[in-house]
Write a protein that binds this DNA or RNA. Structure first.
Lengths: 143, 143
DNA sequence: TATTGTTATACTCTATAACTATA
DNA sequence: TATAGTTATAGAGTATAACAATA
């Protein structure tokens, strides 16, 4: 939701940092997805398909309704990135399998996200600040 | 984008934590907004209107196009939470002003977000883990 | 009866382009 | 000419409800 005006309290500062951090991560991931002409949901779906899974399971992973997955997969299938395969054990189920092109795209996407996110400008410092604030204001139960 | 399967490397673990953290913050903020029957964008707009600002400026704050702000504000205005007021200095500009009801809602929303986010389950520990990983893997330039 | 996936519906967000009224 | 806001349009995400096929 982005950074917000602060009244200067310490808790507010921490929440602002959390929002700011989350927004930065989201913005970065969205930009990377866009590089590959993928919407955020499509990218999230692709990343989840390292191994074939039922549509049902993808819906759970994306925390959205099954009916949404139909649309998301429709668009990926139109681009020949994913295939729906029948499940021999349960004929109601369709298993989602990446095509060769889909797998290549997934790899490139994953690499871009995971190699570059830690270097996103300002992120390391925000984490530092959060850590400092956290230690000053509350205990954490590190079992 | 949510947590993802990890191959066990330390950098991957850190990125997974960042995604997980961002997702947790987003999900929480979305749920709170929904309590007030607000979409995420509507909630973000409301929070930005602590002081009256031109629609133009709100678009910048929300990092979206001006045309989107028209729709977002339309919906808030329909619920008598916001008003468009003419700007005496520049007659092209409309300044967005919260109604009394809008201001009350904004306060309640702000309070819910800012008092409860630090206590969201698992968040403190995730920050701890991120801090640990960060210190082990890279330097931060704290001026 | 319950579950998987689809379809239909409706709403919100998003960007682009064309328009208006101002500047 | 340039800017503020609107409108039209089109695509994507979201949830709900109803449906067919299967369990």
């Amino acid at each position: 939701m982005g950074p917000l005006p602060t009244d200067g309290s310490q808790t507010e500062e921490m929440v602002d940092l959390l929002f700011s951090l989350a927004e930065r991560v989201r913005t970065y991931a969205e930009a990377v997805a866009a590089e590959f002409d993928l919407s955020p949901s499509q990218a999230a779906a692709l990343l989840r398909l390292e191994k074939p899974i039922p549509m049902n399971e993808l819906a759970t992973a994306l925390t959205c309704d099954r009916s949404n997955v139909t649309g998301i997969i429709d668009r990926l299938e139109r681009r020949d990135l994913v295939q729906r395969q029948p499940d021999s054990a349960d004929r109601r189920v369709k298993r989602l399998v990446l095509t060769q092109a889909g797998d290549r795209l997934r790899s490139r996407l994953h690499k871009r996200l995971y190699s570059d996110l830690p270097n996103v400008s300002g992120l390391a410092r925000e984490l530092e600040n959060l850590g400092t604030l956290l230690h000053g204001t509350q205990e954490t139960d590190e079992s």
